[in-house]
Amino acid sequence: MIPLEAYLVVGALLFAIGTYGALVRRNAVVVFMCVELMLNSVNLTLVSFADYLPGAMGAGAGYAILIIAVAAAEVAVGLAIVLAVFRARRTVNVDEINLMKR
């Protein structure tokens, strides 16, 4: 039997990888993918809890479905923003978009 902690550690590492990508990649689309990775790691953690913890009554799985829905919405809106930004500034490199400094 695979222990619960194994799944959790895989989720934590996937989350860290996603964080790393989100922090260092310049391309906004890739940053998006990394955020999706982080969401997936959370899903993985939730589902493993749902399967392992006796008192959870499978709540984690329900949350996972909701997260998938929210993530889908986020992808739709986020990619639309990326498209809009690209049209306005002809680039998707995050470090060239520093309007917040002005």
Binding site: A22, L23, V94, D95, N98, L99, K101, R102
Partner: peptide, 14 residues
Amino acid sequence: LQTGGVQNYALFIV
């Protein structure tokens, strides 16, 4: 410190 870069801010959050 206020670079204006989003990822820079995210780094500080982490």
